[in-house]
């Protein structure tokens, strides 16, 4: 565990808590993509199957259980409890265009052709693009609430901090995972446009609104 990794995890944790607080306090899931959350649930479920096969640390286990628990609770809030506020018309990204190629790629490009390893690889690839339905929704509606922007900033920062973690680990431990690094770079690049808007608008007290 190094400082980049810890900050990355804390950023990820903060993102999830910000999203839950937004939904709970406003009793609304407006502006949130249910499809992105379903993709994240798929990512966590696929990646954390190793909860049953290997124990790493109390920290590791607690975080995994928290991530899985909260993402399913988020889906419950979007599709059941606060369903009336869910903007399904604008959440129209076709997720099969992500799942199918990502599944195929996980079969073709992996570290080892074994079930758990392929499922892990699938989760890494899927995570890198899972935010697309959310970004697509914002581009369709042309705006994002400030709290939603904070959520996205924390979520995007998490993988950027992991990139720093991997650079550190490469030099400190000789650890290098090409699949995670390439997917992490792709994931971070997808947020760049948003990061720019966040820094130029949200940090100056304005909300994100795109020209029509």
């Amino acid at each position: 565990m190094n400082i980049f990794r810890l900050c990355g995890d804390m950023s990820h944790l903060a993102a999830i808590i910000i999203l839950l607080l937004k939904m709970w306090k406003t009793r609304s899931v407006a502006g949130i993509s249910g499809k992105s959350q379903i993709l994240f649930a798929t990512v966590f479920t696929a990646r954390y199957l190793d909860l049953f096969t290997s124990f790493i640390s109390i920290y590791n286990t607690c975080m995994k259980v928290f991530f899985i628990g909260t993402v399913y609770f988020t889906i419950y809030l979007i599709y059941m409890k606060f369903k009336a506020t869910y903007d399904s018309n604008h959440d129209s990204f076709r997720v099969e265009f992500l799942i199918v190629p990502v599944g195929g790629l996980a079969f073709l490009v992996n570290h080892e052709f074994a079930p758990l390893e392929i499922i892990w690889t699938f989760s890494i690839y899927l995570e890198s693009v899972a935010i697309l339905p959310q970004l697509f929704m914002i581009s369709k509606t042309g705006e994002a609430e400030t709290i939603t922007s904070h959520y996205l900033f924390a979520l995007g920062s998490y993988r950027a901090l992991y990139l720093c973690n991997w650079i550190y680990r490469y030099y400190a431990e000789g650890f290098f995972d090409l699949i995670a690094v390439v997917a992490g770079v792709v994931q971070t690049i997808l947020y760049c446009d948003f990061f720019y808007l966040y820094i130029t608008k949200v940090m100056k007290g304005k909300k994100i609104s795109l020209p029509a």
């Binding site: 290997s54 640390s57 995994k64 991530f67 390893e117 290098f176």
Partner: peptide, 10 residues
Amino acid sequence: TQHTSIKDEL
């Protein structure tokens, strides 16, 4: 450099 099959990251 090494790749570990035990994933210690989240």
